[in-house]
Amino acid sequence: MRRERIRETSMEVTVGAFLFMALLALGVFTIILSRQSLFRPTLYYDVTFRTVMGVREGENVYLRGVIVGKVDDIVAERGHVRLRLALNRPLELHENYKIEILASSLLGGRYLNIEEGDEDRPLLSPGTPLVGTTPKELLDEATRTVASVRQTLEGGVLDQIRSIVSNANSIVARVERGEGTLGRLTREDGLYADVSAAAASLRKVVDRIERGEGSLGRLLTDDGRVYRDIEATAANLRKASDDLAQGRGLLGKLISGEDAMMEDLRATVASVRAVAEGLRRGEGTLGRLLTETEVYEDLKQGLRELRATIDDFRETAPITTFSSIFLGAF
C-alpha cells in the first residue's frame, strides 16, 4: 500500500506540474496574442471608413511605424464601417491627420496606419469624429502605376522610339538600294585599288577625327555641322561629276539625276537628324538608348569621310564605306 501511495504522489506532482506549465503557456499566449498591455490603460478610438477592405479584428495599428494597438471591434453601419481601435497611448491628431488601411504584404494581411498630421496645423478638438482614408489596395496601386508608366511610354517616348526605328529602317533600305547601284559602278570601273587606298585614307581621317572631336555630346549637338558637311559633300560630289563628265554612264546618271542619289542622301540626313533629336529627347528616360548613339557617331564619321574622299576625287570608296558603316551598325 505504501508503494502505491508513493507512486500516486509522484503522479500527482507530475500531472500537477504539467497542468501548471501548460496553463501558464496558454495564459502567456493569450496575453501576447491579445496585444494588450496589462499595465497600461487601453484607450479606445472610433474611426469611420467608407470601406475597410477586409480588415479583421485584431489587426495591428501603427503610429508612424510603431505598433500602438489593434483593431478591437468592427461594426458595419449604414453607409460606412466603424472601427474601434484599442490603443495603448493617446493620439494627438492635427487637422490634416490621416488614418488609412494598408496591405502588409502582397500575400494579404492589413494594418492601420495613423499619421497625426503636421505640428503647425491646429489640433483637432476633442470629440471630433475621426474619418479614415479609403484603403489602397497594394495590387491595385501597382496596377495603376504600371498603367501610368505605360501611358507615358505610349504618349511620348514610345512614339519617339518607334519613329527612330522606322527612320533607321528607311535609311537602311535606301542605302541598300544605293549600294546596289554603286557596287555595279565600282565593278565596271575596276577601282579596287582605289577602294583600298580610300580605306587607308579613311583610317587616317578617322584617326584625325578621333584626335580632334571624339566627344559624343558634341556630335549630338552639332547637327548643323553634320548637315553642312553633307551639303558640302553634295556640292563636291557635283563638282566631281562635272569633272568626270564624259560618259562614265552609270555614275553620271547617278549624279546628274539628283532625285536618285541626292534625294536618298538628303532623306538619310534628315532621318539621322530626327534620330539624333529623338535621342536627345529620349536621353535620360531610357539609358539604354544612349549606347546606341555610337551609331550616329559612326554616321557622322562616315559623312566626313565621304566629303574627304570626294575632295580627293576618290568617289567610290567613301560611298562604300558609308553604306558599310550603316549596314554594320544596324
Partner: peptide, 14 residues
Amino acid sequence: AIQFVRNKDLYVGL
C-alpha cells in the same frame, strides 16, 4: 509569428 495569430485561432484550435 504573433503578427497574424489571434486568440480566436488559439481557442478554436483548443
